[in-house]
Design a binder for these strands. Structure first.
Length: 944
DNA sequence: TCGACGCGC
DNA sequence: TGGGATGCGCGTCGAT
């Protein structure tokens, strides 16, 4: 089978290498094509599209040639700074920064290259041209053939026997003859000519007043540049002679700048550049995500690059089948523990070669904002994973009989090796809950990217169906139960920090996490495009971990002294109330026990018991106690007051003081991206999304959230965002008009319902309309509304009836949404986020009713959450673009809290409002304005 | 570990 | 028929 090699060298079949000048491709594609943006989110993708078309065309043409290439790579410039800047600081100095629209496309182009199954080559400190030179020389010297796909004249110096250039735009092959045509000299003298003429684009100085014609004439006359400069005094023309003598050093420097070095190190061995067909699943996922429909179709027709006949009888061994993972059994004992630099370098090299690596960080604490690094695990292929322990040590006081060998790579050295890999734009990093790893590593100076998050991919695919923790995803998707953290670190009080876990045990656990993450990625990622959710993931999820990691690391400042003082005040008043309660009850009892309260009130004191709870106990909740207090009983009021203080003290004052980090003096919450069904965030450890605001006592706690001296807190919140979205989604003319005209929406609702003018409306009337407006969003019933407003149930029922008559669109929205949910099992937000609501298919009537209400609420709540995410994603860039140092600290569903120097307050308010109000654009044109109110103050209460 | 309760949007 | 009857979270406490 296979082709018979026609020519061979001593080393085997003859190598035919194609080297594509990727950077050149990108710029040509960008400038040659009209701007193109991805429809769903406006991401500029014109250059990516052009690039993909060029690559595809090249792949197809290559296959049809008689001498098809055996090896292929796309070569990129790695960074602006190269060794040439050290030679000459003005090198390429006048080059303008790449167009704004092009910048986000650089990483995408690398991704595109990999999607086409083509290796990417780049090396820090070198230009693409240097790498091209190195590979070209190597292959030429071993007797192979090289084709450089570029039209860059700087590469013409490499042309020679068995080295050609190919200008795909002009479809012209450039050999020695064409070079002579262009430069007037043979390729080996091109450098000398360029050194004399210089290059205004790259800012290579050369010699003033000398162009190609003169330069080539001189070189041809004297043979080469060194001879020319040595014999410059012999030149007849006085001006030319003086120039060459005066600028000799500058000319030699110019030659260094233009000369390409064959000894540039090779980032990948030649073997890894062997031509390989793209993985159709990966390629089509990418093209779908980019929304390159035409090319996706062509690629589909062309059988994924196998344009040649060979493809027919050599079926691909395995294409990714999302439905059936079909992974091999996971063997946790097969993982490597990396404890020296050569081993680490080998793993890093493998990650580069694969272009994708799953990783996980192990730390010694829970909070990512303060935890220390214990180790990093990497997985480069399913089953091929390692753990790099970095901070493991013997637990104090627990020395074993024989001290274990804890030799590890010093942290700083490992960080220095891992940083380039984790930051390399051409290597995709995969993590489970990337926010955590981003936060930890950023404190060690590593800005990880680009990164995919398996937790978020799962969340986009299956929110509402299950949780998205790794253990759960592994069981569901891979049918594998990973080692539980508890089983290696212990549980409860005996739980030890991961740094005290032995290396072999730690390796099994940690490397497995990376392995499982990579397998999950392979299993889940293709589904995004397949199920039309790639844009949701890219625009609403993928950028969030970085944004939230920064917010969590920033943390919020609280006035600890003030909180302790409040805690004492609350404690004292609670003691007084407790004594009074015991006196009234005639015996001591635990005021914190609903059970005991029930006994005291209903059994001993004989008060009329109202409702019972689900478990049959007496209900003693606030509304119950309020009723009893209203009947004139004394004890329920005492209990209500005690409960309020107990809540404030236990949940807020004490807990917040305890949550202050010793290291930063601030409170670092953890935001969860994947714990709600609707797309909202949640906050925990501590929860900073439920800081009191309703009561005066509660606001004292909010007032303890303060800014650093010289700074202010700024709170910016969406006004009525859910009602506005209801007006838009339900297409309710009166509501839309009211919002457009900036009217008081609740007063307008009341006026419409009760037929009374807004002018001089009683506040109670407005209050009722407000309760109805909110109730509607949540799918309220007459019973609930009656409870809420303290009115008879039939009256509440009449309100709801009137409401639906006045706003028939809302009824229609509800019916249509329930219908959709029941038939499909899910609903969508206006940005396309899918919210699964399995309860609508339940056998239980009650559960189905729950499902209906959730279905009605989800598009509204979820769309609001999406709008907020879009605002948060754009915010850091918008602040930075204005030169502001303000930081986002907190999000509370419809509110963002910033901390900024006082002098920036006005500008931050302006930017925050602008970004938030326009956050839906350009993806969705909302038919009512989004309005944001923002204020600055020294504390959160006054800013809100 | 669960339920009741209560804080937020 | 009639019971149950506002969406989404998290943390604390007592009871088990």
């Amino acid at each position: 089978m296979g082709e018979i090699p026609r020519e061979t060298t001593q080393d085997g079949p003859k190598v035919r290498l194609y080297l594509v000048d990727g950077s050149g491709f990108i710029f040509r594609a960008f400038h040659a094509l009209p701007p193109l943006t991805r429809k769903t989110d406006g991401l500029p993708v014109g250059a990516v599209s052009g690039f993909c078309n060029m690559i595809w065309k090249l792949l197809v043409e290559m296959k049809t040639q008689a001498d098809a290439p055996t090896h292929l790579a796309v070569v990129f410039d790695h960074s602006e700074q190269t060794f040439r800047n050290k030679l000459y600081d003005q090198y390429k100095a006048h080059r303008p920064p790449p167009p704004e629209d092009l910048v986000p496309q650089f990483p995408l182009v690398r991704e595109a290259t990999k999607a086409f199954g083509v290796p990417c080559l780049e090396l820090p400190g070198y230009e693409a041209d240097d790498l091209i030179a190195a590979y070209a020389c190597k292959v030429r010297d071993m007797g192979g053939e090289v084709t450089i796909v570029s039209s860059d004249k700087d590469l013409m110096q490499l042309v020679g026997p068995r080295v050609f250039m190919l200008d795909t735009m002009k479809n012209a092959r450039i050999g020695i003859e064409q070079v002579i045509e262009k430069f007037g000299v043979t390729p080996d003298k091109v450098v000398d000519v360029q050194a004399l003429c210089g290059d205004s684009v790259d800012n290579v100085p050369g010699a003033p007043g000398i162009g190609i014609k003169t330069a080539s004439a001189l070189i041809n006359e004297y043979g080469d540049l060194d001879t020319l400069l040595a014999r410059a005094t012999e030149i007849k023309q006085p001006k030319r002679r003086d120039t060459l003598i005066e600028y000799a050093d500058q000319i030699r420097l110019s030659r260094e700048l233009v000369r390409l070095d064959c000894d540039t190190p090779l980032p990948s061995p030649l073997d890894e550049l062997a031509v390989d067909d793209p993985d159709p699943a990966v390629l089509s996922e990418f093209l779908e995500r980019m929304e390159f429909r035409t090319l996706a179709r062509r690629v589909g027709d062309g059988k994924a690059g196998s344009a040649g006949q060979a493809a027919a009888d050599t079926p691909r061994p395995e294409t990714r089948a999302p439905e059936k993972p079909n992974h091999g059994k996971i063997d946790v004992t097969a993982y490597a523990c990396v404890r020296d630099l050569p081993a680490l370098d080998a793993w890093i090299a493998k990650a580069y070669a694969r272009g994708i690596v799953a990783f996980d960080t192990e730390t010694d604490a829970l909070s990512s904002a303060t935890a220390g690094l214990c180790g990093v695990s990497l997985a480069v292929a399913p089953g091929e994973a390692c753990y790099i322990p970095l901070g493991h040590c013997e637990a104090e006081g627990l020395q074993l009989e024989a001290a274990a060998d804890l030799t590890q790579i010093p942290l700083e050295q490992a960080i220095a090796r891992l940083k380039p890999l984790l930051e390399d734009p051409s290597v995709l990093k995969v993590a489970q809950n990337a926010k955590y790893d981003i936060a930890v590593l950023s404190r060690y100076g590593i800005e990880v990217g680009p990164i995919d998050d398996t937790m978020l991919i799962s969340y986009v695919l299956e929110a509402g169906l299950h949780n998205h923790g790794m253990d759960e995803l592994s069981k569901l998707g891979l049918d594998h139960e990973p080692i539980a953290f508890k089983s290696v670190a212990g549980t409860g009080k005996a739980q030890k920090s991961f740094k005290y876990v032995g290396l072999s045990e730690a390796t099994c656990y940690a490397a497995e996490d990376a392995d499982v993450t990579l397998r999950l990625w392979e299993h889940l990622k293709p589904r995004l495009a397949h199920e039309g959710l790639a844009t949701v993931y890219e625009t609403l999820e993928r950028p969030m971990p970085k944004v939230l990691a920064d917010m969590e690391c920033a943390g919020a400042k609280v006035d600890a002294e003030r909180l302790r003082q409040l805690s004492n005040e609350f404690g004292q008043r609670m003691a007084e109330l407790e004594a009074e309660a015991h006196r009234l009850a005639g015996r001591p009892f635990n005021l914190g026990s609903p059970k005991q309260i029930g006994e005291v009130l209903f059994k001993e004191m004989g008060l009329a018991s109202g409702r019972v709870t689900a478990t049959g106990a007496f209900s003693t909740d606030a509304s119950m106690l309020e009723d009893l207090a209203a009947q004139g009983h004394e004890l329920p009021r005492i209990l209500l007051d005690w409960r309020q203080l107990s809540k404030l003290k236990g949940t807020y004052t004490d807990a917040l003081v305890a949550a202050i980090s010793e290291q930063t003096g601030r409170v670092h919450t953890s935001f969860s991206l994947a714990s709600t069904t609707t797309g909202r965030l949640s906050s925990s450890d501590p929860n900073l999304m439920n800081i009191p605001i309703r009561t005066e006592e509660g606001r004292k706690i909010r007032r303890a959230f303060v800014a650093e001296p010289g700074k202010v807190l700024i709170s910016a919140d969406y006004s009525q965002i859910e009602l506005r979205l209801l007006a838009h989604i339900g297409d309710i003319p009166q509501l839309k008009r009211a919002f457009r005209e900036g009217l008081d929406i609740h007063a307008m609702t009341a006026s419409e319902m009760f037929g009374v003018p807004v002018e001089g409306m009683p506040s109670e009337t407005r209050r009722r309309a407000k309760a109805i407006n909110f109730g509607i969003i949540y799918g309220i019933s007459a019973f609930g509304l009656a409870n809420q407003l303290g009115i008879p149930q039939d009256e509440a029922g009449a309100y709801i009836k009137t409401y639906f008559e006045r706003f028939p669109g809302i009824r229609a929205y509800m019916d249509r949404t329930k219908q959709a949910a029941r038939s499909q099992g899910f609903v969508h937000t206006i940005f396309g986020r899918k919210v699964n609501i399995p309860a609508v298919k339940s056998k239980s009537q009650a559960e189905r009713a729950f499902g209906d209400r959730a279905a009605i609420n989800a598009p509204i709540q979820g769309s609001a959450a999406d709008v907020m995410r879009r605002a948060m994603i754009r915010m850091p860039g918008a602040l930075k673009a204005e030169g502001l140092t303000a930081r986002m600290l907190l999000q509370v569903h419809d509110e963002l809290v910033f901390e900024a120097p006082e002098a920036e307050a006005e500008a931050v308010i302006r930017i925050a409002k602008a970004v938030m109000e326009k956050a839906a654009e350009p993806a969705v044109a909302i038919s009512v304005p989004l309005v944001v109110e923002a204020r600055a103050a020294p504390n959160w209460d006054d800013a809100h």
